[in-house]
C-alpha cells in the first residue's frame, strides 16, 4: 500500500480544518484545543499539532491530507509535516487583510522547506467582504506562475477543485 500526502497550511483561522473536513472520507483526526487567549478568540478551538484527513484512491494508494496549526507558537510542527509531501495548499482568509502578511510569511517558510508545487487558495469567497483572488495575488506578491484559486472551504466542489488544481500543477512539474 502506497501513501502520499498533501499539506494544507495558512494563517490562524483561515479554514484549514474545515477544508480537510469537507473532503476527507474519515472524520478528521483533529488536535483542536479550546482557545484560552481573548485576543485569539475568533473561534472556540484551534489546531495545536495537526489535522489529519484521508481519501482512498484505490486498493494500492491512499492520499493523506495534513493541516498545519495556524498559530506561530506551534510552528515547530510545520517542517515535520512537510516531509515527503507531494505538494501544499496555502489557505488564505480572504476577508481578513490583517492575516495577509502572515500568509506571505508562511508561504515563504514552506517554500524554504521543500521545492514542491503549491497553490494558493483564497478561502471564504462566499462572504461579501472577500478580497478577489486577483487582488490577493498582488497584495501577497504571488508569482504569476502560481495559481491563486477562489475557494469556499465548506463547499465540497470548491475544495475538490483546489486539490485538482494542485495535482495538475504537480503533473506539469513532472512533465517539465
Amino acid at each position: 500500500m502506497q501513501t502520499v500526502k498533501m499539506v494544507v497550511t495558512g494563517p490562524y483561522s483561515a479554514g484549514k480544518t474545515q477544508f480537510i473536513r469537507t473532503i476527507s472520507e474519515i472524520d478528521v483526526v483533529s488536535t483542536e484545543r479550546k482557545i484560552s487567549s481573548e485576543a485569539e478568540r475568533l473561534k472556540d478551538a484551534t489546531t495545536v499539532a495537526m489535522d489529519f484527513g484521508r481519501i482512498t484512491i484505490d486498493d494500492d494508494l491512499i492520499l493523506y491530507l495534513f493541516g498545519t496549526p495556524g498559530q506561530r507558537r506551534f510552528d515547530f510542527m510545520w517542517e515535520i509535516l512537510t516531509e515527503g509531501m507531494l505538494g501544499f495548499i496555502v489557505l488564505i482568509d480572504s476577508v481578513r487583510p490583517e492575516t495577509f502578511r502572515e500568509a506571505r510569511n508562511i508561504l515563504e517558510v514552506f517554500r524554504g522547506y521543500a521545492q514542491t508545487p503549491y497553490v494558493v487558495s483564497a478561502n471564504k469567497q462566499d462572504m461579501p467582504d472577500a478580497w478577489s483572488p486577483e487582488d490577493l495575488r498582488i497584495a501577497l506578491k504571488i508569482d504569476k506562475n502560481i495559481k491563486v484559486l477562489p475557494c469556499v472551504a465548506t463547499d465540497k466542489e470548491s475544495v475538490k477543485q483546489t486539490i485538482l488544481e494542485l495535482l495538475y500543477s504537480i503533473l506539469e512539474g513532472i512533465e517539465e
Binding site: V4, I55, D58, L61, G84, L164, L167, Y168, L171, I174
Partner: peptide, 27 residues
C-alpha cells in the same frame, strides 16, 4: 523522501498523480 525517490521514476509518479486526479474528480 529517500524511500519515495528511490522507488519512483517520473513515469511512475505521473501515473500515480493521474490516479489521484481521476479519483478526486469522482469524490
Amino acid at each position: 523522501e529517500k524511500k519515495l525517490a528511490k522507488k519512483q521514476t517520473p513515469t511512475m509518479k505521473r501515473s500515480m498523480v493521474e490516479r489521484l486526479i481521476n479519483r478526486i474528480k469522482r469524490v
